[in-house]
Simulated assay, not measured.
Amino acid sequence: MLTTRHGVRPLGVADLDAFLALTSRSPVVNVFADHRARTTNLEPRWLGGEMWGRFEGGDLVAACHVGANLVPVEASADDARAFAERALTRSRSVSTIVGPHEAVEVFWNTVASSWGRPRELRWRQPHLQIDGAPSVEAHPDVRRTTRADFELLYPACVAMYTEEVGVSPETGGGAELYRARVQQLISRGWSFARFEGEELVFKAEVACASPYAAQIQGVFVPRERRGEGLAVSGMAAVVDLVRREIAPTVSLYVNEWNTPARRAYERVGFRESARFSTVMF
């Protein structure tokens, strides 16, 4: 029975099938939420937060992941506003709002006066995907990383995160947690890199995956090696590996102003399929 405003309530294990049917409407765009649902069964203790659902006539019509990341799922402007009004009944706990542009914009406009000034707003990030062979040759030396690569890989992960987010993942005593995250990606087979001797020259990771898609994060080439085409051949290799062994479609989203990265992804064969927005605190 629904007892909350606007037909919004937390979802649980009994809602899993309906939730997966919802994410399947746009399975590539919704890969993060799909992944979280499949790996937690929507159990709050495993989610580390909540998954809210909005219902109309007993049917689940939209959802919102509320953890460290707040992510609207298949949310119209009206749905996003309803989720925002629920969010305003509690203090802000999320560090990032991210998802399709329209839903994020409506959500943010509703909570902005109460949630304080964000550290950064990234309004129109192209969401890209590829579901076929890359348009360029993959570099044969790109491979899954192993625990033996950790000492070369970890500094590149820190450098990428710091450059992308604007703050080191080790800030505030976060080094141990971030090291564990990098090791987890290695263990899953979701970390890829190319090395030249003792030098890492390219890396990328799978952030999340479903039976339909895998989302790439952490694409990085050291500053002194940029402009050599390492990201193009490296990403072509990652696309091949991921499509063959993890999921049939590969996606990512990129900052609108990052022209070199956008050109590299275009050369590989990625095409824009949506626009994302990110609000960072």
Rank of each mutant, 00 (worst) to 15 (best):
S168Y: 10
P169I: 01
P169G: 02
P169N: 01
E170R: 04
E170N: 11
E170V: 02
E170K: 04
T171Y: 09
T171Q: 11
T171L: 13
T171D: 09
G172A: 04
G172K: 07
G172C: 04
G173Q: 05
G173D: 11
G174M: 06
G174Y: 05
G174N: 04
A175W: 01
A175V: 03
A175M: 07
A175Y: 04
A175C: 07
E176V: 10
E176L: 11
L177Y: 10
L177H: 14
Y178R: 03
Y178F: 15
R179W: 06
R179F: 02
R179T: 09
A180V: 03
A180P: 03
A180L: 12
A180F: 10
R181M: 09
R181I: 05
R181A: 07
R181H: 11
R181E: 09
V182P: 00
V182G: 01
V182I: 12
Q183W: 06
Q184H: 14
L185K: 07
L185C: 03
L185M: 12
I186C: 01
S187A: 15
S187Q: 13
S187C: 07
G189N: 04
G189C: 06
W190A: 00
W190N: 00
S191M: 02
S191P: 00
S191V: 00
F192L: 00
F192I: 00
A193P: 01
A193E: 00
A193G: 05
A193T: 01
R194L: 04
R194C: 07
F195Y: 14
F195A: 03
F195G: 03
F195C: 03
F195W: 11
E196I: 11
E196L: 13
G197D: 05
G197M: 09
G197T: 10
E198A: 14
E198K: 13
E198M: 15
E198I: 13
E199S: 15
V201E: 05
V201G: 01
V201I: 14
F202K: 02
F202H: 03
F202T: 01
K203L: 04
A204F: 09
E205N: 15
V206T: 10
V206M: 07
A207I: 08
A207S: 15
A207T: 10
A207M: 12
C208D: 10
C208R: 07
C208K: 06
A209V: 11
A209P: 07
A209T: 13
S210K: 08
S210Y: 08
S210N: 12
S210E: 08
P211M: 11
P211G: 14
Y212S: 13
Y212W: 12
Y212P: 02
Y212I: 11
Y212F: 13
Y212L: 10
Y212Q: 13
A213L: 10
A213I: 10
A213H: 06
A213P: 05
A213K: 05
A214E: 05
A214Q: 08
A214K: 03
Q215M: 15
Q215A: 15
I216E: 03
I216Q: 06
I216H: 08
I216G: 06
Q217A: 15
G218V: 12
V219Q: 08
V219F: 08
F220T: 05
F220Q: 09
F220I: 13
V221H: 01
V221G: 06
V221T: 14
V221Y: 03
P222N: 11
P222L: 14
P222F: 07
P222E: 13
P222W: 11
P222M: 10
P222Y: 14
R223S: 14
R223Q: 12
